[in-house]
């Protein structure tokens, strides 16, 4: 099992290949639909002026994401009343919804890894090569198991997005993933889709 520590260097990213199981350790953030949309509109395309604590959150995220990892996850969190946050269940959510945003976000922040499920498309794969970064696949639905690798919840931003959509900052240890899109243009998802497409064509011809 390959051990990778966050922040991750370009050299390590380029050495990771599709199919490789990895244990990730270090500090990462969760971000899904609302957070990606917010980052793109407010700081990358700038179609929306920063409001409220937007700029402070942005400044806090920049060092975390430089060499960092974004986890597509909307966790179940206990201790909401007391702010003694703990991740109870924290598996990945479907990544493809972030396809329009992901490559731009990674490039903007120089982030090195995305964790999610289901894989992503051509634009993200292109970004993987350019930035570079890789896509780590976590096991969908394995929420309690993955939550055990979350050692500490360091904080939360944009709580007003709601618990699933907020940006949680977490320290993880031995977070289990598999590389399914690498920085060399390889995507396991592309291969499986193509191969299963051939079988489908045969079945439909019957």
């Amino acid at each position: 099992m390959r051990e990778v520590t966050i922040p991750i260097s370009d050299e390590v990213i380029r050495s990771l290949k599709v199919g490789e199981p990895v244990n990730l350790s270090g500090v990462m953030i969760t971000a899904r639909d609302a957070a990606h949309k917010w980052m793109i509109e407010t700081f990358i395309k700038k179609t929306r002026a920063p409001q409220g604590d937007d700029l402070q959150v942005y400044e806090a995220l920049r060092p975390l994401l430089n060499g960092g990892v974004i986890y597509h996850c909307g966790p179940v969190v206990s201790g909401l009343d007391t702010k003694q946050y703990k991740f109870v269940a924290a598996g990945p959510t479907t990544s493809i919804r972030e396809e329009p945003y992901q490559a731009d976000v990674m490039k903007h922040f120089n982030a090195k890894g995305v964790i999610g499920k289901g894989g992503m498309g051509a634009k993200t794969l292109q970004g993987c090569q350019e930035v570079p970064f890789v896509y780590f696949h976590a096991i969908g639905g394995a929420a309690t198991y993955i939550a055990q690798s979350v050692e500490t919840v360091l904080g939360v931003y944009k709580y007003e997005f709601g618990v699933p959509e907020a940006i949680w900052v977490i320290r993880v240890r031995d977070f289990p993933v598999v590389v399914t899109m690498d920085a060399h243009g390889q995507s396991l998802h592309e291969v499986v889709e193509k191969d299963s497409g051939k079988v489908l064509a045969d079945l439909l011809a019957k």
Partner: peptide, 28 residues
């Protein structure tokens, strides 16, 4: 294989969720 690894993780998660009374999947 990655597929087998996925199933093994899934089953570990099933047992753990049952023990802890915690959600099998965070998307309830």
């Amino acid at each position: 294989s990655a597929a087998r690894g996925a199933l093994e993780t899934i089953l570990k998660n099933v047992e753990l969720s049952r023990q802890n009374s915690s959600p099998i999947c965070q998307d309830t």
